[in-house]
Nucleic acid binder design. Structure first.
Lengths: 151, 151
DNA sequence: TTAATTGCAAACGGTTTGCATGGGC
DNA sequence: GCCCATGCAAACCGTTTGCAATTAA
C-alpha cells in the first residue's frame, strides 16, 4: 500500500487493537458521552500504556478533518469528540448554557421540529456554499434559575 | 452610592472615559465585528495606556454575566465579545464553519425562518427551564469547497 | 477607613510543535 | 532505505489568579 494510512479506504483498517486509530474508534464507539482528548487518553492507556497524549490529539484532529469524528466546544475550555453516526448516540446537540455557572442542559424539546428545519437548511447551505456538512449545533445562552436567585 | 458599581443601574454610569467599563462599552459600540479580549485591549490602550489586559478580561466576564455583552466561541481558540442589542449589528449568529481551514461563513439564508423557530423555542425553554436567555447560536460544521478540492 | 478596583507577574491548562526514535513496506 | 508514525519534553497562548497597591465612597 502506498501513501499514509488515512488516504486509504477507511473500512479496511487492518491494524492491531493497540493501534491509536483502532483504540480511539473503539473507545468512542463504546460511549454515549462527549469525551475530551484527555478522557480518551486515559482509556487508551489502559489498552496500550505506551501511548502518548500527543498521538491522541493528532489522530483526533485527522479524524475530525476526514469526518470520522466530530469536534465540539461546550465552552468549558476543552474540546470534546464523538464518532460520526454513532448508533449509541441520539446525536442532537442542542444546549442551554448558563453564562454564570457554566451549567449545560441538553434539552430535547422541539428537537424534532428543529431537526426538520436544520436538515432542510443543511441541504440548502450545502448546495449554495458547496460545503460538505457533517453536523450542527444549536446553543442558547442565559442565566439559569439557580444563578438568578443568587443575584 | 453603596455596593459595587455594577449593582447600580447601568444607565447612570458616571465614570470618566478612561474608566474600563466606559472604554469597553465605547469600543464595542463602535464596531460591527466580534472583538476578542486582546483586540479590545489594543483599542483600550490607545485611550488609556495604563490599562491592563486582566481588567479587560474581568470586566468582560462581568458584562457577560449581567447580560451587557455576549460571549461567543468561534472555535479559533479565543473568546469573542459583542454588545447586546448593538444597533450596528444584524445580530444573527448563524455560521458555516470549515473544520479543516477554520473558515467561517456568516450565512443569511433561512435566517428569517430560523429566527422564528428559535424565538419560539427560546420562549418555551425559558419557561420550562426557568432560564433567562440572552442569545443563541446556530453552527454548521463541514468542509468548504476549497478544502474538498485539495483533498 | 473600608471596600472595591486595578496592574503586574506568575501560574494554569489545554493544545501544539520540534525533534529524535522507532516501525512498516 | 525511506517514509510515516510516535513519544517526550518543551513551547505556546489565551485566560485566570494571588497579591500588593491604588482608588473611590
Amino acid at each position: 500500500m502506498k501513501g499514509p494510512w488515512w488516504q486509504q479506504r477507511l473500512c479496511d483498517y487492518g491494524f492491531r487493537l493497540t493501534n491509536p486509530r483502532a483504540m480511539i474508534i473503539g473507545i468512542l464507539r463504546n460511549t454515549e458521552k462527549h469525551l475530551s482528548a484527555e478522557e480518551i487518553y486515559i482509556d487508551a492507556v489502559k489498552i496500550n500504556p505506551s501511548i502518548g497524549l500527543t498521538t491522541i490529539y493528532r489522530t483526533l484532529d485527522l479524524f475530525t478533518q476526514i469526518g470520522v469524528v466530530q469536534k465540539f466546544d461546550f465552552g468549558d475550555g476543552r474540546a470534546r469528540y464523538e464518532l460520526t453516526n454513532n448508533p449509541l448516540k441520539k446525536d442532537h446537540h442542542h444546549h442551554l448554557v448558563c453564562v454564570k455557572c457554566k451549567t449545560i442542559i441538553d434539552y430535547t424539546d422541539f428537537v424534532h421540529e428543529e431537526l426538520e428545519l436544520m436538515n432542510k437548511t443543511e441541504k440548502a447551505l450545502s448546495r449554495k456554499y458547496r460545503f460538505n456538512i457533517y453536523h450542527h449545533t444549536v446553543h442558547f445562552y442565559g442565566i439559569c434559575s439557580q444563578c438568578q436567585r443568587e443575584g
